[in-house]
């Protein structure tokens, strides 16, 4: 009786399972396949021998990496750049959203929004091409202006400290507009009557912002901050790879660029996979933690 019921249910559900089959197969091959390929991290991997015949060497790849002189610096760079980006990427959009919220002329507001969203949709390849040109120490437009003011040219992309600053600022420039969307939506959903009664109580614009608008978007601010915990090892491969050069490896070489160089350029597959695995595991733990906290603190569910 019971198995009959199960059979009936499966028959009824069959079309849905069949629909899911193509995406499931693709994900199995191209997402779960590489997860199985992680075994390379524990092998002295030789492509000619394949995954099954390369010798197992335990944790030797990890030990080898830890002896690398640069690896601590790479870890620190990754963490440092990512944290600065998260901090700037949290504060700036909130300020911009509050500022846009004070604009009462709809047309002007929409015009500004249209323009500041635009850079988000451009690739770092194109933006890096532009940045390299305008930041060049000889003939770049920024340095031309500095020199016109009687200052020395700055090696924005050739000097470690300036390079990091350039990373953070250009990232804010690309994403700040787009990141305000969520905050603006949260502001719009604040109950209008709160403002009306505040005006009756004699509260000015500043106090309305401080006591109504900001508390009104506190939930979404906390949520986004929590979800950012997961990207503490994502310093932005696309941006850094397209802007950096050996001169600034000291201050801007991150885990992802490091993995690319030792894996794809030096062909040390086992070692590169080991470093990648380290990153994946730490990120996995952090993302899980952030989802858990987001669920506990603001009752957020992914789906």
């Amino acid at each position: 009786m019971n198995s009959n019921k199960t059979l009936k249910r499966l028959y009824r559900e069959l079309p849905l399972h069949l629909m899911l089959l193509p995406p499931v197969i693709l994900v199995l091959v191209f997402s779960y396949g590489p997860m199985a390929g992680i075994v390379i991290a524990f092998q002295d991997f030789v492509p000619a021998n394949g995954w099954f015949n390369s010798p197992w060497i335990g944790l030797d790849n990890f030990k080898y990496v830890l002896d690398f002189p640069d690896v601590r610096q790479v870890l620190w760079n990754t963490f440092f750049i990512a944290v600065l980006k998260i901090a700037a990427g949290t504060v700036c959009p909130i300020i911009l959203a509050l500022s846009l919220n004070e604009v009462k002329k709809t047309l002007f507001k929409r015009g500004i929004q249209t323009i500041v969203y635009l850079p988000h949709f451009m690739s770092w390849v194109l933006l890096a091409g532009i940045l390299i040109d305008i930041l060049s120490p000889s003939g770049g437009i920024i340095n031309n202006m500095l020199q016109a003011l009687g200052m020395q040219p700055i090696y924005f992309l050739g000097d470690g400290a300036w390079f990091r600053a350039t990373l953070i600022i250009s990232n804010v420039w690309k994403e700040v507009g787009f990141d305000t969307i969520v905050y603006l939506a949260a502001i719009v959903s604040i109950d209008r009557t709160q403002y009306e009664s505040a005006v009756l109580d004699g509260a000015g614009y500043t106090r309305q912002m401080w006591h109504i608008t900001l508390p009104g978007i506190r939930g979404i601010i906390i949520l986004l901050m929590l979800l950012n915990i997961g990207s503490i090892l994502n310093a932005g491969f696309d941006q850094i790879f397209n802007l950096y050069s050996p001169q600034v490896y000291d201050s801007a070489d991150i885990l992802d660029t490091f993995v690319y160089r030792i894996g794809m350029e030096e062909m040390q597959y086992g070692v590169a996979t080991a470093v990648g695995l380290f990153k994946s595991i730490v990120s996995f733990v952090l993302i899980t933690l952030s989802y858990y906290l987001a669920y506990k603190v603001v009752n957020y569910r992914i789906f």
Partner: peptide, 17 residues
């Protein structure tokens, strides 16, 4: 599906696949 967004094989294994 969700799991693939929080964990991945990384660059080299994806390349190998």
């Amino acid at each position: 599906f969700m799991f693939t967004t929080i964990f991945g094989g990384g660059l080299i294994p994806s390349f190998m696949v």
